[in-house]
Design a protein around this nucleic acid. Sequence first.
DNA 1: TGTTTTTATATTATATACAAAATACAAAGC
DNA 2: GCTTTGTATTTTGTATATAATATAAAAACA
Lengths: 225, 225
Amino acid sequence: MASKLSKVNLNDYKPLREVIFDTLREAIITGELKPGERLMEVKLAEKMGVSRTPVREAIRMLELEGLVDMLPRKGAHVAELSVKDIMDVLEVRASMDSLATRLAAERITDEEIKELRQIQAQFVNYANKDNLHGTIKKDVEFHELIYRASRNDRLLQIANNLREQVQRFRVIYLKDYSSPKNLIKEHEDICDAISARNFDQAQACAQTHINNQEKVIIKAIKNLK
Amino acid sequence: MASKLSKVNLNDYKPLREVIFDTLREAIITGELKPGERLMEVKLAEKMGVSRTPVREAIRMLELEGLVDMLPRKGAHVAELSVKDIMDVLEVRASMDSLATRLAAERITDEEIKELRQIQAQFVNYANKDNLHGTIKKDVEFHELIYRASRNDRLLQIANNLREQVQRFRVIYLKDYSSPKNLIKEHEDICDAISARNFDQAQACAQTHINNQEKVIIKAIKNLK
DNA sequence: TGTTTTTATATTATATACAAAATACAAAGC
DNA sequence: GCTTTGTATTTTGTATATAATATAAAAACA
């Protein structure tokens, strides 16, 4: 019988391209790699101690993900993220979030409702203690659970990609992350509507929530200019 | 001054990976490559007269696109497309189409309205003559124009991917493509609402249109079982 | 015969090698 | 000084080679 060790190793195995992909994506999203920055295969490969092949494959994936742009025979560079881009993303995400919340209200399980309320309680707790890190974490968890409860994998996949873009934009343009107290109320409303499985109301609450979020970002954008 | 000739050649250049990517994607969407079918690098490379490298890169891209699945060290195979998958896609696409139509009503130019009406006229013409091929073509053009008029590149990109999946499903499961006459009326309504720049109504019409489309597909799915 | 073990083969994963194009820069010509 | 042209260098695009793993077939054993 094979030892557990080998089994674990098999499950843990990740192709280098995936590791590189994750690393580069993280670097792009956190702004460590800046928009327009060139991605040179040999340099990246050397820095990461691998050959060019997995680096290239990772770049191909990042290209599809929209995080890098390619020019034939000129190489890859970190995709620029314009205000127009982020407006486009926000517009789509609003619609996705709204849909997800409606579907979640229809399909969420009782356990998940409990979980949602728990997250919400922790969110409130952190927010009241001005714990920014914790608040953001719970905010993300809150929305992740809702997407999960929508029981729509495609929606989840698209939303993750959009979230990525927004996050990236935040890092690049808006260094600070304000945590307005009215978020609490909005989450509470969404929570209640979902718990009551009132999908129309849930969708409406989500819409309000996103519109407000959008306003914050758009206001911040205008301040930049 | 450089001649036009050299410019054209430069623009025409496409890396092999892109050519392979397009070819494989087309093959998967049209059902030439069937769900579950293995994609072996050497075979594909030989068949296409290239080395494994561009084939691998194309496969990495198809993976992100959701058209192939990978198992580490076991290779790639054409992604299965379950009924659940297509329901998920339809759910999201409904929301996207609805959003696109609303935005189009807000942002479409006068020229585009003219163009839309023209396409619609041709659509009606083909449909009345039972020209299936022409009808489908104009149907696609109709929706493409609306997406274009939404002035949202991200939306366009996502919608294209979703359309891909639906098309694939059609080919795999529903060999025939019924062209019900009431499509004409629905398109007409959308056209009118957009022309009047009445975005609420445009969105509502789009919603109706998509819901009906969904019903057709769902009905067809049920007939399969 | 059925089951395990071994071995061979096929296939992916990664690294390297080579070719072609783009870029940078210096020398020549005006 | 400015442009042009040629050359060296860098970098990508593609092909091939090597290593590691999985699959399948054959051999050994009960």
